[in-house]
């Protein structure tokens, strides 16, 4: 008997818990030569905005110990082009395709949600609340519980039948407070965590390694932070949590399920090798059998103190 890796996640049925993280898997199609997209639990595509975005100047990425910094600046083709040219080529009837939303004010977020709510091939909406709120002087939505709650509410109102996931930033004093606010606002699930802000400099040229100076840290280096955040949030809210942050093996997946996550996203590890997410999804049932775990549901949140 093989282990049950299926997951029920806020109205979606996933064949396994292994999804891809926004911004690390292109629009999915880039990775099609390296594995069967249908074998993934879900695909979260590159962050989409209402209009195409140029992104930040170069250099945009820097390698750091066990991780990397990025300041891509949400370069993307815009929601219309995605729906017209990319989505039809994705296996949306067999694997949930999740749109990641990026905007600079609540109205724009709501409008974007409205556009995506009518797209049959989009299974859920993931809201990136780490962006600066232009109308509130640039403070990130994700750093203020009231703003995070209002944003979740605004998106949920326009999302129709699509589940809304809110992707939380770890760059806050108390992530639990933001998590509670997002769920109160109507979030169906929470994605934990976005990148940690960081920077890197070159002592010879005396320049920052990123043109944007500050970027988001990701990769195995942040896994302990992600694990702590997921554990805290899972204890505090009843909404399902999707874990992301430094996951690069099936063992890592189980660590996050153990502290309460429903599903996971593979991010920076997709850059280590382009078949990484596929390999992790393939390996998971075997690992569970080796450990005597019958199902994810039975293992979830079973961390003993």
């Amino acid at each position: 008997m093989s282990a049950d890796v299926s997951v029920r996640l806020a109205g979606l049925a996933l064949k396994n818990p292994v999804m891809t993280a926004s911004g690390t898997f292109g629009y999915g199609l880039e990775f099609a030569p390296y594995g069967d997209l249908r074998s993934l639990g879900g695909i979260v595509v590159k962050g989409l905005s209402l209009k195409p975005r140029l992104g930040n100047p170069m250099p945009r990425i820097a390698e750091t110990p066990c991780g990397m910094l990025n300041a891509i600046g949400l370069q993307n083709c815009g929601v219309e082009k995605f729906l017209r040219d990319k989505l039809p080529l994705l296996p949306h009837s067999e694997t949930p395709i999740v749109a990641n939303l990026y905007a600079c004010d609540a109205d724009e977020f709501a409008e974007l949600a409205g556009v995506l709510s009518g797209a049959a091939g989009v299974a859920a909406l993931e809201v990136n609340i780490s962006c600066p709120n232009v109308k509130a002087g640039g403070i990130a939505f994700g750093q203020d519980p009231a703003m995070a709650g209002r944003l979740a509410e605004a998106v949920k109102k326009r999302a129709g039948s699509k589940p809304v996931w809110v992707k939380l930033s770890p760059n806050v004093t108390d992530i639990v407070e933001i998590a509670r606010a997002a769920v109160l606002g109507g979030a169906d699930a929470l994605t934990c965590i976005n990148t940690l802000t960081g920077m890197a400099v070159d002592i010879r040229s005396r320049k920052p390694r990123l043109a944007n100076v500050i970027g988001g840290l990701s990769g195995p280096a942040i896994k302990p932070v992600a694990l702590r955040c997921v554990w805290q949030v899972c204890r505090a809210v009843s909404a399902p949590v999707i874990a992301v942050g430094g996951i690069s093996s099936a063992e890592d997946v189980l660590e996050f399920i153990l502290v309460g996550a429903h599903a996971v996203q593979i991010g920076t590890a997709n850059f280590m090798r382009p078949d990484m997410a596929f390999r992790i999804a393939e390996r998971l049932p075997g690992l569970m059998e080796e450990l005597g775990i019958e199902s994810l549901d039975s293992y979830r949140g079973s961390l003993s103190s």
Binding site: E30, F31, Y34, P59, R60, I61, Q75
Partner: peptide, 28 residues
Amino acid sequence: ENRMACGVGGCLGCVEKNALGAYVQTCT
């Protein structure tokens, strides 16, 4: 020889500004 993370068009880290002012991916 722009710095690359994935090499397959997934990260948008290796871009170069083209003659029209848009960013093109060095890897693809």
